[in-house]
Amino acid sequence: MKYVILIYSSESYWENLSESEREAILADHGRMQEQMRADGAFLGAHRLMDTPTASTLVHRDGASELIDGPFAETKEQLGGFYLVECDDLDQAIGYARIISSDKGSIEIRPVMFSVD
C-alpha cells in the first residue's frame, strides 16, 4: 500500500530558524529516510520551493486564468512530500512521527493508484 506523507509548515518558520535548528530538522529527516530504506519503504522524497514560486491555473466559467502564487493562501504551506510503500497506516504514521519535531502538520494520505 502506497502513502504520501505531506509536510505542511509556515515558510517564514523555516526561514527564521538558526543554522543549528535547521540541521536538527534535517537530521530527523535523515533518520526517517534511513528507517524507510531499511524497511524497503522508501519510494521518493521531494522538497518543494517556496510558494512565491508557484503558479496556479484557475478554471472559471469556461475560461482559464493563470494566477501568481499558490492555490490557497494559508498559514501553513505544503513544503515537501515523501512517497512510501507500507504494510498499513500505522507504519506510515510511525515514519511521520520521526520528523514531528518539525513544527507544523504532517498529512498521511493513502494513494489510490499510481501510473509509472
Binding site: M1, C86, D87, D88, L89, D90, P110
Partner: peptide
Amino acid sequence: KIAAAKIP
C-alpha cells in the same frame, strides 16, 4: 477509511 487507508 479503515479499508482505504488500511488501518491495521
